[in-house]
């Protein structure tokens, strides 16, 4: 699962023990979020033993499902050397427009066609991102900032600004479907919703795609060194369109999940959640320069972010400090991985 870039690390020089540890963790970037999760859990378990309960685990998994889907999309884009900040706008656009259409014209539609439509619409919007990045030859960040505002502005000025609760029955049923239920000692019932499975399936599929298919190899090749990938015969422009379309598709699905889980469609939702998602992916070990990272690392990054935000409340830290701590985490992860990159270059 490791990237092409980080594989050829052991050269002639024999590094010391500590350096070897660094290099080892460079090849297994998932170690970083995993270690942080363990540390966080240990601290919080010591302060508040109640925390280590299945109910809390369910809570964190449920809260990670939607962010996880978004993060997988961002990860694939990042692996190919791009960056997408428009995915929340795509998710909001698809979720609101689609729910509106289904409620008004096809109230009896099942969840499977709805999800398929969302995936398709999101994929098309994402492909537009890819086309623009290719055509404008500008940094993907700047292009997707443009599409983010264009899409969000179009949603709010042309589609609607009012939230509505009468979402289609199939969506609300999907959001309510239980996978498992536990009752805490205090008699509180906590359910693990079935849609968590969807994220797990998508994660497995993404991992399979990246590791065992040609397009997966192409993604990492393009992310590592585009010129060399082009000489190897990968069509760089097509790969770029594919990764942005993939991210858009997952964003569309995540949008429908969001409506189903909250049982209301609010066009103002999801905006501004792109930074925590990108933070999760970066914490998971994907370099913004492309060509590296793993699905496992990404998912652990997502869980870490969710864990931290729920833990702060248990620790008695006001939630207003959450953003600052998140920023600190990104900087820490960035420093950690930049240090590793330098060791490899040496």
């Amino acid at each position: 699962m490791t990237a092409a870039r980080t594989v050829q690390t052991d050269d002639t020089t024999k590094p010391g023990r500590l350096a070897q540890l660094w290099l080892w963790s460079a090849r297994h970037p998932a170690v970083f979020p995993a270690a942080m999760i363990v540390i966080t859990c240990a601290i919080i378990g010591a302060v508040n033993p109640d925390f280590l309960h299945v109910a809390n685990l369910f809570d964190i998994l449920r809260a990670s499902a939607i962010r996880g889907l978004l993060a997988l999309g961002v990860f694939v884009v990042l692996a190919a050397g791009g960056l997408d900040v428009s995915f929340t706008a795509i998710a909001a656009f698809v979720m609101y427009s689609l729910t509106l259409i289904v409620v008004n014209f096809l109230p009896g539609a099942g969840i499977v066609p709805i999800l398929a439509c969302a995936a398709l619409a999101g994929g098309v919007l994402g492909a537009v991102n890819g086309l623009l990045v290719n055509a404008l030859r500008a940094p993907a960040l700047i292009v997707t900032i443009g599409t983010q505002y264009a899409l969000r502005g179009a949603l709010l000025s042309f589609v609607g600004t009012a939230l509505f609760m009468n979402i289609p029955g199939s969506m609300s049923a999907f959001g309510q479907m239980p996978l498992a239920t536990v009752t805490t000692a205090r008699g509180l019932t906590v359910t693990l919703p079935a849609y968590v499975l969807l994220t797990v399936i998508v994660a497995l599929a993404t991992s399979w795609m990246l590791n065992y298919t040609l397009i997966g190899r192409a993604v990492f090749a393009v992310g590592g060194k585009p010129e060399i990938a082009a000489r190897l015969g990968f069509r760089v422009a097509h790969v770029r369109i594919f990764v942005f379309a993939y991210a858009g598709m997952l964003a569309g699905i995540a949008g429908v999940l969001h409506v189903s889980a909250n049982r209301l469609a609010n066009p103002f939702d999801l905006a501004g959640t792109e930074l925590p998602v990108i933070a999760a992916v970066v914490l998971g070990g994907a370099r913004i320069t492309g060509g590296s990272g793993t699905v496992l690392g990404t998912m652990l990054g997502v869980i870490l972010i969710t864990l931290v935000s729920s833990v702060l409340i248990l620790l008695g830290i006001p939630s207003s400090w959450q953003t600052a701590i998140l920023g600190g985490f990104i900087i820490l992860a960035g420093l950690f991985f930049a240090r590793i990159d330098r060791m490899i270059l040496k």
Partner: peptide, 27 residues
Amino acid sequence: ALIGYAGMTPIIATLGTQLLFTGLAVG
């Protein structure tokens, strides 16, 4: 310091500090 001396990518570094600065202001 993050970009020049620690060698972080400008996007990630300023994304992180954006969250950090906003977070400090909120806090």
